[in-house]
């Protein structure tokens, strides 16, 4: 019982179950839904970055694809009357795209891996932006409606919020299960010492491919929810700035040192981005500079600072000092 009470996820769930009833912030209900889908996005992304050490810059593309898949399937396939199917379509397309890319670049390392994911994102953006017949091109797709789900009116923002909340709970539990499983430990071994992993019998290319696919599925799911939230899909959502956002949110929270980092990071990141962009036209100036400042001075993010404090006394047990975890020289 005590163990369950100490579980950070439980507290996060409790806080967000009360979100719509909080003073002031509770009135921004769609911000709440956006936060929840960002948590799913960032947690899924961190399976790649924090767990496996894959420097992926392609998750914006998977998010965007999920978004388009939901919009297109809603408008074209299901005759404007479906709720679950567009979401499933988002997951499937996100995972399929990630699987394709992941298979092609499973043997690549570091800089090459990152560059190829950037290139992939650009291709997706090019297609979405130009293929008017399917994606609506520059104008994007709009008119996506949220129908009923088991009789619950999803067009009610609060009901939709709780739907997102449910999805978040399921995803967070699954992702944590994955990262604590044998499979998760193997992924960690791939990050920390790929050569040794191979000599323990791991086909590391296959592991990278698998985790990339899973992670892409979560990104697609988040994208589909975003489509339903905004009731539209634009090429902007799969631009590489989206990829930058999710990496930044994850690093800000300290995804490389803590499982909960991405949640903390995207909470702050999304709120600040919404707040500043509504207050100042030239918000991008602060937005860009924040990248520089965070990465220069807090490379292990907020959780990194917390952990470093705790690790100040030299101890033998447990984790290595937080600093070592990301400040490793590439071999």
């Amino acid at each position: 019982m005590n163990k369950i009470l100490k579980d950070p996820l439980l507290w996060i769930f409790l806080i967000f179950s009360a979100y719509p009833f909080m003073p002031y912030i509770g009135s921004f209900i769609s911000l709440g839904s956006e936060l929840l889908l960002w948590f799913v996005f960032a947690l899924g992304f961190n399976l790649c970055l924090g767990q496996t050490g894959l420097p992926s810059f392609g998750h914006g593309a998977f998010f965007g694809m999920g978004s388009y898949a939901a919009a297109i399937s809603f408008l074209r396939l299901f005759n404007h009357d479906a709720f679950v199917m567009p979401i499933l379509a988002g997951i499937v397309l996100g995972a399929a795209a990630a699987a394709l890319l992941g298979w092609l670049i499973r043997e690549k390392k570091g800089v090459y891996f990152a560059m190829l994911t950037v290139a992939f994102t650009q291709v997706c953006f090019g297609i979405a932006f130009r293929w008017d017949e399917v994606t609506g091109g520059e104008a994007g797709l709009s008119g996506v409606l949220r129908g009923a789900f088991f009789g619950l009116p999803m067009n009610n923002p609060i009901v939709f919020y709780y739907f997102c909340f449910l999805v978040f709970i399921v995803c967070a539990v699954i992702i944590r299960k994955i990262s604590r499983s044998c499979f998760g430990l193997s992924l960690q071994s791939v990050r920390q010492n790929p050569l040794r992993s191979q000599y323990l019998g791991y086909n590391i290319g296959l592991y990278k491919f698998s985790v990339y696919t899973i992670s892409g599925g979560f990104a697609g799911l988040a994208g589909a929810l975003y489509c339903l939230l905004t009731q539209s899909a634009y090429a902007d959502v799969l631009d590489w700035s989206k990829s930058g956002d999710v990496v930044m949110a994850t690093l800000l929270g300290g995804g490389t040192v803590s499982f909960y980092g991405p949640i903390l990071g995207s909470l702050i990141f999304v709120i600040c981005k919404n707040l500043i962009s509504s207050m100042w036209v030239h918000w991008a100036l602060l937005y860009g500079l924040s990248f520089v400042i965070i990465l220069s001075f807090f490379p292990t993010g907020l959780m990194g600072i917390v952990k470093k404090k705790r690790n100040l006394e030299p101890r033998l047990r447990g984790n290595a000092p937080a600093q070592e975890q990301t400040r490793r020289e590439e071999p």
Binding site: S189, Q192, A320
Partner: peptide
């Protein structure tokens, strides 16, 4: 050549669970 951020036990587990 070890998994530097893991415990000794986890280092062994990685191989065993293969």
């Amino acid at each position: 050549s070890l998994f530097e951020e893991m415990t000794v036990l986890d280092n062994m587990r990685v191989g065993i669970q293969r």
